[in-house]
Design a protein around this nucleic acid. Sequence first.
DNA 1: AGTCTCCAGACCTTCTGTTA
DNA 2: TAACAGAAGGTCTGGAGACT
Length: 289
Amino acid sequence: MGKYSIKELERLSGIKAHTIRIWEKRHQLIEPQRTKTNIRYYSDDDLKKIINVSVLNNNGVKISRIVQLSLNEINQQVADLSEKENSIDIYIEQLIVALVDTDEEQFEKMLGHLTIKFGFEKMILEIIYPFLEKIGVLWLTNNITPAQEHFITHLIRQKMIVAIDALPLAPKESTKAILFLPENELHELSLLFYYYIVKKKGIRTYYLGQTVPYSALTSIFEVHKPQLVITSFTTHPRASELQKFVDKLCADCESAKIFATGYALKKTPITAPPNLILFANALELSQLV
DNA sequence: AGTCTCCAGACCTTCTGTTA
DNA sequence: TAACAGAAGGTCTGGAGACT
């Protein structure tokens, strides 16, 4: 059972906290529970309702009209809208609702539908990435359980692997790229997508996966002599540790271009050696390689 | 103690629909 | 088309509790 502050509701739904209060006061849209000190807090059902209300409101339905609808009617109108409109925001909101409900069937159905409708790349870049950013809010506020996290990453991962598998293997003489996550790095969704991008470009890929020990890495460098090394840092080591790792990597793989991205690099600016290229997102990577 | 966040109310601006 | 009214939402202020 989730417990959200008004600020969290604002960040997840895009409706300003003040507006939520006004809607509550003027229309009794949602009647949240209160702490002993009178601070509002909201449930999963409240969150789902406000997300669906924001979808309708953003599509021109007046709040005075929305409050006359029952919950079922609101849900139905949102479903109708997503059938008719191509609005990416509606899909993101619906994915969040499916996540809050841990509705695997609905989530899976939506991923399949979106892949067909937009194509794999567009779906990941324009829907899944912003969705994962919103999920970050749930993470920070403990409103996502390990089971929920497991269930979404598993489903997205599955789609990525299917898309990667469908691409032809590049010939041995092609440019070689090694993709890996450093030790203790477990969040491989970004890396999997980079894998897709480089494989699609006809690059011969060696995907080593998550938490690769440094010793294993150097022996792979020696055997395959890659021209590209791609990695991602999602956790946040101390700046000095990160700098040491990057320096070592650049020294051991001097002849390769090294591409690195991720949250840790954003938070911890490091001095970039000549063969290290820091990039922000998958689109940028596809232009760089 | 200082800072941050939230609450509530008053007032203001903008937008939209209606009427003459 | 202009004037008007009402709805919706924004800004400001002051008070209170939570947090560091």
